[in-house]
Amino acid sequence: MTWTESVWQRIDPLYKKIIHLPFNQELLKGSLPREKFKFYLAQDAYYLGEFGKALSTISGRLSDLDHVLAFSNFASGAIVVERALHEGYFQTLGLPHEVKPSPTCLLYTNFLLNQAAYANVEKAVAAVLPCFWIYKEVGDYIYAAQTQSEMNPYQNWIDTYAGEDFARSVHKAIQITDQLAEKLSPEGQEDMFEAFEMASKLEWMFWESAYRLEKWGV
């Protein structure tokens, strides 16, 4: 069993909670209130910009040139998606171009940036993996569970994360993480899991906070 296979088993109960969150269940049905989706997209755009910075930082710390190139491409891909959100959804939904991060979004992005800069690189890679992997699994789950009788107003989002291009990136990220984990001791692999688990928890918090339209309490 690979490292990623073993850690997915360990966070599977959390993943099941994520797919059964009201946000994702209503997104699946197309009944998610527009305001909640708008809030989520604005926070996601902010997140993707910071995520791209974290990926770029990790790219510069990796030693294998294939890994360097992959993470450089991941970083540019995150920025491209962020730009596409601004040019597409931001205009059609009337979202402001200056996004202030919610408490959860700021917590999540600061965690990733900290891991990318200061943790050992294997742990940093493990920290960014849930954003790839959990999003892909959620996208696949929603796509497979949809009824095709009515057009979902959020179909474009669903298609993005259930698409083949994103799947290739996820597969590459998983492959690299396993290659790095193979070289570590059991203790080092457990350190990687701690980062992977924390990021998975923050993924749950991100969707849950979007459904609540989370605000700063001041």
Rank of each mutant, 00 (worst) to 15 (best):
188 G>D: 02
216 W>R: 05
47 Y>A: 04
145 A>P: 10
129 L>P: 00
204 W>C: 03
115 Q>G: 00
47 Y>M: 05
78 A>T: 01
197 E>W: 13
80 V>T: 09
184 L>N: 03
66 D>H: 11
79 I>A: 11
39 F>I: 00
187 E>A: 14
183 K>Q: 12
72 S>L: 05
176 I>S: 01
32 L>R: 11
22 P>I: 05
9 Q>S: 09
66 D>T: 10
154 Y>E: 05
165 D>M: 09
112 L>T: 03
50 E>L: 07
152 N>S: 07
142 I>V: 15
214 E>Q: 13
119 A>P: 00
158 I>W: 14
81 V>K: 12
4 T>N: 06
177 T>G: 01
119 A>T: 00
218 V>E: 10
152 N>I: 05
6 S>K: 15
41 L>H: 04
52 G>L: 02
141 Y>N: 15
64 D>N: 14
207 W>S: 02
53 K>L: 12
87 E>Y: 13
14 L>H: 12
47 Y>K: 07
196 F>Q: 06
174 I>F: 01
193 F>I: 00
43 Q>C: 10
104 T>H: 08
69 L>G: 02
71 F>T: 01
55 L>Y: 04
6 S>V: 09
132 F>T: 00
80 V>C: 03
45 A>L: 14
79 I>N: 08
32 L>G: 13
83 R>G: 04
154 Y>R: 09
165 D>V: 11
118 Y>Q: 10
137 E>Y: 12
4 T>P: 00
